[in-house]
Design a protein around this nucleic acid. Sequence first.
DNA 1: ATAGTATTTGACAGCGCTGTCATATCCTAT
DNA 2: ATAGGATATGACAGCGCTGTCAAATACTAT
Lengths: 341, 341
Amino acid sequence: MKSTIHDVAKKAGVSMKTVSRVLNHEPNVATKTREKVTAVAKELHYSPSLAARGLASSKSYLIALLYDNPSPSYIANIQKGATQACRERGYHLVAEPLDVEDSNGVIDGDLSAEIERHLERLPVDGAILTPPLCDNGSVVRILQRLKIPYVPVAPISSHGNLPIVQMDDVKASKEMTQYLISLGHKKIAFIKGHPQHSATPRRFEGFREAMRKAELEIKPEYIEMGDYHFRSGIAAAENLLGLKEPPTAIFASNDDMAAGVISAANRLGLSVPKDLSVGGFDDTPLARILWPQLTTVRQPIEELGFAAAKLLMSKDSTEDSARTLEHDLIVRGSTGPRHAK
Amino acid sequence: MKSTIHDVAKKAGVSMKTVSRVLNHEPNVATKTREKVTAVAKELHYSPSLAARGLASSKSYLIALLYDNPSPSYIANIQKGATQACRERGYHLVAEPLDVEDSNGVIDGDLSAEIERHLERLPVDGAILTPPLCDNGSVVRILQRLKIPYVPVAPISSHGNLPIVQMDDVKASKEMTQYLISLGHKKIAFIKGHPQHSATPRRFEGFREAMRKAELEIKPEYIEMGDYHFRSGIAAAENLLGLKEPPTAIFASNDDMAAGVISAANRLGLSVPKDLSVGGFDDTPLARILWPQLTTVRQPIEELGFAAAKLLMSKDSTEDSARTLEHDLIVRGSTGPRHAK
DNA sequence: ATAGTATTTGACAGCGCTGTCATATCCTAT
DNA sequence: ATAGGATATGACAGCGCTGTCAAATACTAT
């Protein structure tokens, strides 16, 4: 039933090794031969056995996606991009939720040993490390000890001169701020995210740059601390909107907090975007079910996954896939021109 | 560096085959031998090569998670449960997003062929089929043709006498309704979901059963059609709350629509749950970021993934893992006692 | 004690592929 | 035409494990 490389070789009138060469896109195969073999392979519905290939070449054609506990949509998107890249090369993506971090983000010895044991028997050619795992020393150390190549996605910390994939949070944040400014807003507030998250200082930095460039003042009372959760958005908005001179626009550094802002504004009888413009960040599914829909920044998450997988698969070749991927400013209904009082 | 079965055998003073037996938990190995081998294996940090094992036994120790485009949190949870089950048995889960359905849910010949080709070179021992894939004839047929064992998760259609895993939507819906009734509500409205989704009739059925059992009238105008999207929840709520005699409780058959209801109620100046109780279904992340938080039904999604994977791995043994998993009624702030007018 | 059965172990081949290295074929420059 | 190098192909072993089947050993009932 299932055909082997032997069948193909026989039918094409060449040796198994030649078939193998064609299948692996090795050089030094006559064009004619290559075509012939390709044709026969297709005709026979031949597809190589991962296991046999892996055994012979001591590669597994498997790439692991290591993740801890990010938002489901984040890993779903990374995963989508990564599987796509894998498909192009006959690789497969194995999902590995790790459950490393407990509440305080620390990993104890037992857990570490357990993970090591698990990873040890995970015969992958490489791993994609998503946040916050990419900044977890224990996990990184295990990977290094096991000599599993990995690509960190959007890490905070540096990883030597290891290639990483990321987006430019500073730039994106700057663009959002500039967009708000272009609408005529001058009194713009910013809600920071959780201080331990890598993106937090970057997003704030982008905001500051844009404000400085536009020569707008950043009032200290317009900067609120949040933690990326809905609730902190509400709290921040209540503070902000309670000011004697409230801002006309609030840039919350993620969508959940922006949703909190909208919710608080509505409850205070303010209309968005007429009385208040609200900007978010991430373009989560939530952004579209809010009313009004949220102006936000789309992270190139799927692309990050794609690039990371690609990087892993082309370890040897110098093929340099883009490392810093492009985001998009998504303008929706939650932002509008400043309304003359 | 990496030890092989040969090393273990030598060190334990037995044949490779015996080591193999121990590792695979085969019967007919003397207890003493088994212990000895186990000890040596641990000492040597031995872990079998998936590839070699697969080649020799023509199994891959890989299970595919086939999904199309469900909510990210759905697949994330299924995935979590499934990987957990896989780990217990040394299997791995490969993620396979399929992109089968276009807008109208039909799958054309080209796509079908492409999927078949892809699945063909996916050397898995089994596949978990999530909705809506589990009810997609083309996909099911491909799987059957390829003789890939699969377990449908919460399918609408019957799959012969193939084991399936599911939850009891009728029962869950009935419980939610009964809970609403127990709060004193009598005028309870129901918002149906998308008619093509398997759960839609079931959830409605549960509602009806509960109402009938409590001898409460189901007014036709209290039944709204929705499509599981936020927007349809808003629309339905506007109709319902515009009635001369509006309901005091609305059971939306998923969380997104329930969110719409809450949003609409707020805009109409109604306070939830004081003036209106709202129940949802699914316990999506959204349920917790709403204000008030949503009373809803937690689907045993992770458990479904776990059970499905388990089923696939124990094909031979008659081991009968539970097929219909238990849900939970999650009571939060969006429901409260009927308020005497 | 002895045949007969059940349990436990091992030798060996081979799963389907690729790495190595030898061989054959082609081209280029003289 | 021919040496010499570049290019193309093939023979063969063996990757690490398990299936098969035969052998050894342990039990049981007489």
